[in-house]
Amino acid sequence: MNFSVTDNHFFKETSLLKEEKKGIITHRSPSNIALIKYWGKHGVQLPNNPSLSFTLTNAFTETKLDYQTKNETESKSEISLEFWFENKKNEKFEQKIRKFLESLLPTQPYLGFVHLKIYSQNSFPHSAGIASSASSMAALALCLCDLEKRLLNTLQNTEEFYQKASYLARLGSGSAARSVYSNIPITTWGKTDVVKDSSDLWASPYTLPIHDIFQNYQDTILIVSAEEKSVSSRAGHALMETNPFAKTRYELAHSNLQKLAFALENGDTDTFIEVVENEAFVLHALMMCSSPPFILMETGTLTIIKKIQAFRRETNIPICFTLDAGANVHVLYPNKYKKECLDFIDKKLKPFCFEGKYLKDHVSNQ
């Protein structure tokens, strides 16, 4: 599918832009936590292996886009942008968003026809150590697709609308491709035989059967560190190009996705735990095998992992962990064990969190 609007259709529709138009568009997008990790890319933000993620509920970004068409004398080849984060002008974020929008101009020229004011805020503290790029870029991409829809009368089909939003979000942040689908518990991104019609270009709702035990699955996010990562995810992805274990990793991701699909359908928490923890360990092992190598886990991360695994052995509660590309720990467990797990987290794991911080979240429900 071609999502460019630079063909004749666009230039026919530019007559719509001669009349002044203005409005406000608002979208909210959730964060997500990958169970099958995306690590390594090629081309323009294309994944080297498929990924699968839980869509979260309480951690989200809300973005408001205030737009007004430019007058006839103003340049249509430049981005006009003002950006506010948490009700304050943010030059650093504005530069990042401006660069992103400028990269879209060749294929989305309508962006040059409007003045944009963007207001963004998170439901979670920005300094809490939770990566917000997925939710923020997804919310922005949804706003941009709504803008195109209003200006050019395109994207009337719901599936096409969300596919393009995911496509644009991916160009800003790979994991953001999976965050455009609110209220969808699981999403996948990347071509795989396991999921029909999957694509490297955009993420899709996971349509295979999901056992009841994985409905409303809990994710308590332990903030081990609130400091900026020593190596960015962008740099980490680039290092996969020379990683000696890259080929094996990509093969493993396909295999693990098959196993996880079986576990999700059959309520097999043992296999779920095996795959999810393996994916977390492999992700960080790849970092340590990069050239140069780097470590994003902290001492508290390892201590928490050991305590989770010990608690699981002692209680037979199917609690497990996963890690993003950072030090913080996502503690995953079925809703039926919520009380026991939260008690354990508060008493045994909280002391290893930065300022005792952790966030309670759960997988989105349809």
Rank of each mutant, 00 (worst) to 15 (best):
F54H: 07
Y38H: 07
I79F: 05
K70L: 14
L52Y: 09
S31E: 01
T57W: 10
P50L: 04
Q45A: 10
S51F: 00
N49C: 01
S75H: 09
I79A: 09
Q45M: 15
F54Q: 03
N32Y: 06
N90E: 07
W39Y: 08
L52K: 06
N58P: 04
H42Y: 14
S77K: 14
N32V: 04
E94I: 00
G40I: 04
Q45G: 09
E72N: 07
N48I: 03
N32F: 07
N49D: 00
L56T: 08
L35N: 03
K37E: 00
E74G: 01
T63H: 02
K99W: 10
L35D: 08
H42I: 09
T63M: 09
H42S: 13
K41R: 11
E78D: 01
K88I: 07
S31G: 15
E94H: 05
K64G: 08
E91L: 12
F83T: 00
T63S: 06
T61C: 13
S53D: 08
I33F: 03
I36R: 08
F100H: 08
R98N: 11
A59P: 06
L35P: 06
T69V: 07
E74D: 13
D66H: 14
T57M: 06
Y67L: 08
S51Q: 05
P47D: 00
G40P: 12
P30T: 13
K89T: 14
S53P: 10
P47I: 02
N32W: 09
E86T: 12
I97L: 12
L65D: 08
E62N: 04
A34Q: 02
R98H: 11
F85M: 08
I79Y: 04
E94N: 10
K96T: 05
S31H: 12
